[in-house]
């Protein structure tokens, strides 16, 4: 076995050259591509982290926005509730007011209806009473009943002051006084009336007579300037007027 130092040396050199060649054509390219891949992965991871951070920030913003929307929604709901409550209170108040107004109006209407019914009842009652009185009076009003009315007329004239009595005849003339009675007077009664009136009014009073059954009983003395009513028709009318004026139900 011979040891070749030349071969030994050349093999050592060959190996060192191969170290350089593989470093140049194998290890460097592989390390470079791996480093580049790591760099790209790092860059992608950084970008992904940034994207994740951005997504996280967006998520937080969305959550904050959702919270704000929730708060706003609660505010709106609270405001709507308050508004609805206020509207409900107002509607209730309005309804109560309207009900009160309707009740008052109804009460007024009832009062008016009651008053109208009472008036109507009163009117009918008065009419019935008047008719009843008139009918009763007509039943008892015979011709001789005119005499007491003459007495009342004469009594009235007797108590009338002279100046007032003079005003009944501002100027003398025939047929100046018209005496209307409920029953036609006979001649004797007419003479008696004419004589008594002449004694109080003077001989020129010019009495004329007329009959009006509507008077029921009594007479109406029509002067040129005045009318004296002493009969039951006017008495009933006065009573009716008085009843309507004083006794109307409140």
């Amino acid at each position: 076995m011979n040891f070749s130092w030349w071969t030994f040396g050349l093999q050592a050199i060959n190996f060192l050259i191969l170290v350089w060649l593989l470093q140049r054509f194998l290890f460097k390219p592989v390390k470079a591509i791996v480093a580049r891949r790591k760099e790209e992965i790092t860059r992608d991871l950084t970008a992904a982290a940034a994207e994740k951070e951005r997504a996280e920030r967006l998520r937080r913003e969305m959550e904050a926005r959702e919270a704000a929307i929730g708060t706003e929604r609660r505010k709106i709901i609270d405001a709507a509730h308050a508004q609805a409550s206020a509207d409900r209170q107002k509607l209730l108040a309005d309804a109560r007011g309207e009900a009160e107004e309707i009740r008052a109006r109804t009460l007024r209407q009832l009062e008016q209806d009651r008053a109208a019914a009472a008036d109507e009842l009163f009117e009918r009652t008065v009419a019935i009473a008047t008719n009843l009185a008139e009918r009763l009076l007509r039943e008892i009003a015979i011709a001789s009943i005119e005499q007491p009315f003459l007495m009342r007329v004469l009594d009235y004239l007797d108590r009338l002051p002279a100046d007032e009595r003079g005003k009944l005849f501002p100027r003398a003339g025939a047929s100046a006084l018209l005496v209307t009675t409920a029953h036609p007077l006979g001649d004797q009664d007419q003479s008696h009336w004419r004589e008594q009136l002449a004694q109080r009014l003077g001989p020129d009073c010019g009495v004329r007579f007329n009959a009006d059954p509507a008077l029921v009983a009594g007479a109406v003395l029509t002067f040129p300037q005045a009318i004296l009513r002493f009969n039951w028709r006017d008495g009933l009318a006065a009573a009716l007027k008085e009843l309507r004026g004083d006794e109307r139900p409140r």
């Binding site: 050349l10 093999q11 060959n14 050259i17 191969l18 060649l21 593989l22 054509f25 194998l26 390219p29 592989v30 470079a32 591509i33 580049r36 891949r37 790209e40």
Partner: peptide, 21 residues
């Protein structure tokens, strides 16, 4: 050894010349 060096170098060059990420 030269042959092996040449083959290794050529193989490495061919294998690594079109490296991609």
């Amino acid at each position: 050894t030269w042959g092996l060096m040449a083959a290794l170098t050529a193989g490495c060059w061919l294998a690594t010349r079109a490296f991609e990420v």
